[in-house]
Design a protein around this nucleic acid. Structure first.
Lengths: 126, 126, 126, 126
DNA sequence: GTGGTCTAGACCACG
DNA sequence: GTGGTCTAGACCACC
């Protein structure tokens, strides 16, 4: 799978990497049970620091997207990964609120917003 | 208008404040042409530093939400503020993509996501 | 003569006003010997502070564009106003240098720049 | 590259610094992809405060002259930097108009003005 | 009074 | 090490 990082972005590399991997799982490019490269390997491939990859993997593990085995290394969670929890729903709404406030302020209608959401959902469809 | 800041949050204060003010404009609590408190006044009210408020105001000015009037001080843009531009749409999609990727990965359907969006839109309705 | 001020501009009002009056002289809308409104009058007309108009008039007087008579009030200098001096040429070059540096950096050619200059000269022609 | 600041000037230091760096890019003293000193380093070298340099860098980044690379620090944009946009052309004309009005008023002809422009363009040539 | 600028010094996340 | 953020306190131009 191709991972793209933007070193000019305001978003920390470890978060960009986390988002890319989640997107890979969503689109099916990364399948449950599939192994991810080792920390060293991935860091070398991407030209970034080992610590950065480590941080990404730890957050992904914490959220339940991946499992870290002593022997098999890092693999995509084959339980289907994390589901919708109340904590997650709260976080999601807090995240969306300012985005929607600005959209609404700029006179982007709910209908137009929904079209954008739908388009992105489609793009990510397996 | 009541402005709430979370000093424990990892979101910078100046961005929280920016989001709060945009939300105020969206909900109509802050009306076009209305004056905002001076940087020093607002800083004192919120218990934060003048420069932090200044940074917020500068970003809001840059995006077209407010104007800095040489006589009246800081006022809400009475042209209705910024609209939907291509730059904004690109930014919006880049912002939403990882959020939707995670939502989809957690098996939150497009329909459920749309309900959440709709609810937030309603809350912000004037 | 119509004087336009932009209260949202970064440029101080007294400088905007000064520039407008010089432009008026250049285009011939204000003729040598012609009287300008009194400080009070102009301030009232423009909705600005008396001190601001006063400041403008003092700078214009200092540069030789206008004369301030005790009795006749403020009039456009009928000697044809200030000419090109060495001081002025130095000031002009220092002013233009950063503007041209940015233009050149953005790949605006000397020819294109000259066309812009020519257009503005034409607009200001009596 | 040698950067000169005039602490007596009424032009803010961060703008002088911005202009100097743009001039450096224009003349080729600063090459695309080249790294600039860190905010602290440059501040120390120039005997000014870190925040002042930071402000300069942020404006240069905003205009597309430099990039803030998460690994390499601050570097000159290697895409050749910003080009001529409509916004820029408008800003340029608004900037030039009062300068030309005064020049014309002082009987500096278009031909003489063009010679000055040409001289400055030559000075800045790589 | 206002916003704009500058300083000095601090803490933090990131890599 | 870097840039990003925040604080406290100062001076200035403008209106």
């Amino acid at each position: 799978m191709l991972l793209k990082l933007d070193f000019q972005s305001d978003i920390p590399i470890y978060l960009q990497l986390k988002a890319e991997i989640i997107e890979g799982i969503t689109t099916g490019q990364l399948k449950p049970g599939e192994a991810l490269p080792s920390v060293r390997q991935l860091a070398a491939d991407l030209g970034i620091n080992m610590h950065t990859v480590n941080k990404t993997y730890n957050y992904l593990k914490q959220d339940g997207f991946i499992l870290i085995h002593r022997q098999k290394g890092v693999v995509i969670n084959n339980d289907g990964g994390p589901r919708v929890t109340n904590d997650y729903l709260n976080k999601l709404q807090q995240e969306l609120r300012p985005i929607i406030a600005e959209a609404s302020c700029r006179r982007l209608t709910l209908e137009e917003f929904t079209i954008i959401i739908t388009k992105i959902y489609d793009q990510l469809q397996k």
